[in-house]
């Protein structure tokens, strides 16, 4: 479905310096700096996959999305999506994709949602029967029936996002780009959006590429994860594999009767400690969790113990640190 081979893209950026003298100098002469936004990016994606594409700000995420959606032309490399090269047959290719930019709206602000939908129908030249079928399905699954006749500016962010997603699926694309679809949404709306993507992916075999900073999105949706940093792909695989490879830390929370003795076990770090409760980080490469519990029960009178895998959020932060991103 998607095959990306050795994509490279670099930008020239003017260097700005501070100070009045420097600024005056820059009036006549400017230094340029080359930034490699993408270096040798390769991956392939099968139909029906949901792929989480993550990385810190400025890592090259949006550049990749822009190349794949036909907006940007790369310096070198190839990209074949559904038999098209996105930047070559832009107009024909983009009929097959849907794009949601979470921070920008594709709906017309002052008119009812349905008017925007109808205009999009004309832009994408969707046939009346297809439009009708898609619309009724989307209205039903996203529960839009009450929203259709409200002007967009009166919608809440969550309502609007549901409409945005519907808008990008009206022309039944086979590939959907979601750029931070849950940004700024409340918990209920986030769940609704995730639920919908999951169902729609199942029913229509829709391929989804998802960028986000919310790891819960990834955990809920994406089987597969591509991590990018400084223009390079750092990890490409299943979420579970990422955990096995990097997630060697577990969090151990213990409650105990008041005691004066210090907790000091090799392979653990104390994350927090109060009189009767401590939270420990355990490096499972050095020591087993059960061993730690055993040692602890020798020192303390434990009343409760709970073990958690390291939250993916922390795992990513750790990864970023490891790669110095």
């Amino acid at each position: 479905m998607i095959s990306v081979q050795g994509l490279n893209k670099s930008f020239k950026v003017a260097r700005r310096s501070s100070g009045l003298r420097q600024a005056t100098k820059a009036l006549f002469h400017r230094d340029y700096q080359t930034v490699h936004a993408l270096s040798d990016i390769s991956f392939s994606i099968q139909p029906g996959e949901i792929v989480g594409y993550i990385g810190p700000n400025g890592a090259g995420k949006s550049t990749t999305i822009k190349v794949m959606s036909g907006i940007l032309v790369p310096d070198s490399g190839s990209c074949e999506i559904m038999g098209y090269t996105p930047w070559k047959d832009r107009a024909r290719y983009v009929k097959n994709i849907g794009v949601v930019f979470g921070q920008r709206s594709q709906l017309w602000w002052d008119v009812p949602v349905i008017d925007s939908f109808e205009l999009l129908r004309d832009i994408y030249k969707v046939s009346p029967s297809e439009y009708k079928a898609n619309l009724s399905l989307l209205v039903e699954t996203l529960q839009l029936s009450d929203l259709l006749h409200t002007p967009v500016r009166q919608l809440s962010l969550g309502q609007r996002m549901r409409c945005e997603i519907a808008a990008s699926l009206l022309h039944s694309p086979t590939l959907l780009f979601l750029d931070e679809p849950t940004i700024g949404l409340d918990a209920v709306s986030k769940l609704a959006v995730r639920q919908f993507i999951k169902t729609y992916n199942n029913e229509r075999n829709l391929t989804v590429i998802l960028t986000t900073h919310d790891m819960n999105d990834i955990e809920a949706l994406a089987e597969r994860l591509i991590l990018i940093g400084k223009g390079h792909i750092l990890f490409d695989g299943r979420l579970k594999a990422l955990r096995e490879k990097f997630g060697a830390h577990k969090t151990l929370t213990i409650d105990y009767k008041e005691s004066a003795s210090n907790i000091d076990i090799i392979g653990t770090t104390i994350l927090s400690q109060t009189g009767q409760r401590a939270v420990l980080g355990v490096d499972t490469k050095q020591i087993n969790v059960s061993e730690v519990i055993g040692k602890l029960s020798e020192q303390l009178e434990l009343s409760d113990v709970s073990v958690e895998a390291q939250p993916i959020e922390e795992l990513i932060v750790q990864l970023y640190q490891e790669y110095e991103l």
Binding site: A23, T24, A26, L27
Partner: peptide, 15 residues
């Protein structure tokens, strides 16, 4: 004034 001048100088094209 100084801030505005700096700002203005950055945008030489505009000037």
């Amino acid at each position: 004034i100084k801030l505005r001048l700096l700002y203005g100088l950055q945008y030489r094209g505009a000037a």
